[in-house]
């Protein structure tokens, strides 16, 4: 059985079927991310004054990642335009550039994740709280780099205002690496999704987005590699497939355009 309207437009919609299909899919994706965005808003608005973590993410790295994704959005649309101009070599070049951008994005994101997952938050028996990056761990002690210490408050987890005060204080600002005996530790956690509400929504939103980036990159890589054979047998359908995969990629870019200011800058 042949799939209808893969190239020619359907009379009632004026579009080939795959295009209507991808737009319907993107509409469902808007609702998926919309639900998570609204969850973020609810958590953010509901947080007590001074308790919502800010400035924990690296803005220059986030900006670079934004630029990478914007660039990939241009290369993906240029790949489609190259096919329209019958320039297959340029298509291959732009398609490869998109895949490289996607890999860069995922690598940078992985670096950010690693940075957070090695950041330890420790509550000590003397009532102080220390956070910093884990440098060394033995059976007896851990060593944290760039530690920031501030008084722990029972019942309250992460306190950005207390950290800010500690960072501006002469005694605590980025002191030497700190050795902490395991016997002195009451509670220890890392800045993963389990750390607090902020990191839970941060990892959920960026993790889901990263999965979309990986999925989109796999499709684009397929049409750059083995899937590109179709250009010889059915160039119009191939061009349409590139347009459809491009639409998905632009959506991924759109989501990041909103995620970046919300998570990194506010």
């Amino acid at each position: 059985m042949e799939v209808p309207y893969t190239v020619e437009n359907r009379p009632d919609t004026g579009l080939y079927n795959a295009k209507v299909g991808i737009w319907l899919f993107l509409a469902s994706e808007v609702m998926l991310f919309g639900a998570l965005f609204s969850s973020y808003i609810l958590l953010r608005v509901g947080a007590l004054e001074g308790h919502w973590p800010t400035e924990l993410l690296n803005v220059p790295i986030g900006t670079v990642n934004t630029m990478v994704l914007i660039l990939s959005s241009v290369t993906v649309v240029m790949a489609w335009a190259s096919l329209k101009l019958n320039d297959f070599k340029k298509f291959k070049m732009y398609q490869l550039a998109t895949v490289i951008c996607a890999c860069m994005f995922v690598l940078i994101k992985s670096y950010e994740y690693r940075d957070k997952l090695t950041h330890h938050d420790v509550v000590l028996a003397d009532g102080m709280r220390v956070d910093g990056h884990l440098v060394e761990e033995t059976d007896e002690y851990i060593i944290l780099s760039h530690p920031v210490s501030y008084p722990a408050v029972k019942g309250i987890g992460y306190r950005p205002t207390a950290i800010k005060e500690a960072e501006h204080g002469d005694d605590h600002h980025h002191a030497e690496d700190r050795k902490i005996m395991l016997a002195d530790i009451v509670k220890r956690t890392t800045w993963g999704p389990w750390a607090n509400t902020y990191f839970a929504i941060y990892f959920t939103l960026t993790g889901l987005h990263a999965l979309h980036v990986i999925a989109g990159a796999l499709v684009i890589a397929y049409y750059w590699g083995p899937g590109s054979k179709m250009w010889k047998t059915n160039p119009e359908q191939f061009t349409n497939r590139i347009e459809v995969s491009g639409l998905f990629w632009h959506f991924v870019d759109l989501v990041w355009i909103f995620l970046f200011p919300i998570l990194y800058l506010l």
């Binding site: 737009w23 319907l24 959005s73 993906v76 639409l247």
Partner: peptide, 19 residues
Amino acid sequence: VALYFMHLIDEQKIIYKLL
């Protein structure tokens, strides 16, 4: 991005209705 890269500036009515 939506208007130019996704070509929404010049799209069929059905897409506008859907959106």
